[in-house]
Structures are given as structure tokens and as C-alpha cells.
């Protein structure tokens, strides 16, 4: 249409929607912040790999609190997070942050972002490989597991993950795509990696420690108690997890022994 818009061989400018996480620091000295963060995030598990992050100091209880940016950024990078921006803070904060390569960013970038998911109180400490068969249909990224996933075990699938048994407390299942659990979900299920907002979780019996889709998460305490023990699907809608009970299938009446 316009003469100078000839094909560009110098660069390509592409829009790519990317989640931006925010770390809102409220109070505390660096040591406390670091140990809390570590406890919160558990062992680095690749969940946050290559996720952009803004440090938000706009709600700092004491605005003069000194922040050790190299230490905080160092820890975040251990988890694969890429801290790139700073919101709020005093002039000293801005100066120190700039030295770490953080740019001041406006509120709009922070309000649209999401908090960092906490890890379970007891981080999963080892990855155990479990024989998994690529699902029928041929996608090598998909996995099907036919046995109970026990505490301490972690299953990771690049695509969809189907579990034909339960995921127990202390176990963790992670998928780039959706997760289907034909049993109880008592541990952690993280679908959609860090940015696949179309992913969902399905389980026959919802009693999770944590559920997440594309990095948006809820822990047990944040879930409506009426949904526990129910057959549910979990999807992401308007940036929030939406848990839907699938009525008639719910194992409301669990059998008691004998």
C-alpha cells in the first residue's frame, strides 16, 4: 500500500504475548526475602524457565528498606526467571536496579501480571523416571501413565499428560499441554507450562495441593471447599483459574470398608 513498505530483510518485528510475572516485595530484609522465596518456590523445577519478571516495590511497607538486588535477581535466575523491570521504589532502588539491568516499568505492566506460584511445603527433591508410553495418535510429546504417581515422584510431559490412576500427595505432574487424571488428584498438577493458556486439567476427584494452568495457580486453601472430592475440569478464563464441577460423575459417596 505504501511505497516504502518493501519486504524487510533487516529485521522482523513480531508481537508475541508473553506472561510477565511480578514479585511484589512488601517488607523484610533481604535474608528473610530470600529464604521465604526459596521456601515458596521449592526446588528449581523449570516451571518458570524463561519467564519475564518485574520486581514491584510500590507496596513496600517501609519505603526506605534497602533491597539487595544482586542477591534477589541471582535467586530468581536460579529458577530460570528473567528479571527485567522495576516498578516503584525510591531513587536508590532505581539506581541499584538499573545497575542490575532492570528497567523502570509503568504500573500497567505490573497490574496485568501475576504473582509467583508458591511451591508445596515439602519440595519434591528428586525426579524419578517412570515408564511412560507415548499416547496413541502418535504425538511423541504426549504421555500416558498407568500407575499411581507416588509421593516424591514427578512426571513431566512436553505435550498432554494422561494418568490412568491417582496422583498422590507429595507427587507432581507437569505438562506443556493438558493433564487428565482418571483418579484422585492429591498432589500438584501444573498444566500449560508457563504460557499455554488453552491447557486444562481434568480429574475424577479433586483434593489437590496445588493446581496451575499457564503459571496461574491456586493452592488447596484457596479453593472452594465444595469442590473437594468432586470430578472437575480446571481451565484458565480471563486470567483466572475456573474450576467446574462435572455434576453426575462426582464420587460423592465414597464407599466405606465392608
Amino acid at each position: 500500500m505504501v511505497a516504502y513498505m518493501t519486504p524487510n530483510t533487516t529485521f522482523e518485528l513480531k508481537a508475541r504475548s508473553h506472561k510477565v510475572l511480578s514479585l511484589r516485595i512488601l517488607k523484610g530484609d533481604t535474608t528473610t526475602i530470600l529464604s521465604r522465596l526459596r521456601a515458596h518456590l521449592g526446588e528449581p523445577n523449570g516451571l518458570f524457565r524463561d519467564s519475564l519478571l518485574v520486581i514491584d516495590l510500590s507496596n513496600l511497607e517501609d519505603p526506605h528498606t534497602a533491597i539487595n538486588f544482586p542477591a534477589v535477581c541471582g535467586l530468581l535466575k536460579e529458577y530460570g526467571l528473567i528479571p527485567f523491570g522495576l516498578h516503584g521504589g525510591n531513587s536508590k532502588h532505581v539506581l541499584d536496579a538499573t545497575e542490575m539491568g532492570l528497567q523502570p516499568v509503568p504500573a500497567s505492566l505490573v497490574s496485568a501480571t501475576q504473582g509467583v506460584a508458591p511451591a508445596a511445603a515439602e519440595p519434591v527433591t528428586e525426579t524419578q523416571t517412570i515408564a511412560a508410553t507415548p499416547a496413541a495418535g502418535g504425538n511423541e510429546d504426549n504421555k500416558t501413565i498407568s500407575k499411581t504417581v507416588h509421593s516424591g515422584q514427578r512426571i513431566v510431559a512436553a505435550g498432554d499428560l494422561t494418568i490412568l490412576a491417582s496422583v498422590n500427595s507429595g507427587a507432581e505432574v507437569i505438562a506443556g499441554g493438558s493433564i487428565h487424571i482418571y483418579g484422585a488428584l492429591r498432589g500438584r498438577a501444573l498444566a500449560g507450562g508457563s504460557d499455554n493458556t488453552e491447557a486444562s486439567i481434568f480429574c475424577l476427584d479433586l483434593e489437590p495441593e496445588l493446581i496451575a494452568v499457564a503459571g496461574e495457580y491456586l493452592v488447596y486453601d484457596e479453593i472452594d471447599g465444595n469442590l473437594f472430592g468432586k470430578t472437575t475440569t480446571i481451565t484458565l478464563q480471563d486470567g483466572k483459574l475456573n474450576i467446574v464441577k462435572l455434576g453426575i460423575l462426582s464420587p460423592d459417596e465414597k464407599q466405606s470398608p465392608e
Partner: peptide, 13 residues
């Protein structure tokens, strides 16, 4: 039960 579950996982690996 949680610890036993962990052990069951280890017996399998």
C-alpha cells in the same frame, strides 16, 4: 501413609 507412599515410589525406582 504419605511416607509409605514415598517408599512405594522408591521400590519402583
Amino acid at each position: 501413609v504419605r511416607d509409605s507412599d514415598r517408599i512405594v515410589g522408591m521400590l519402583g525406582s
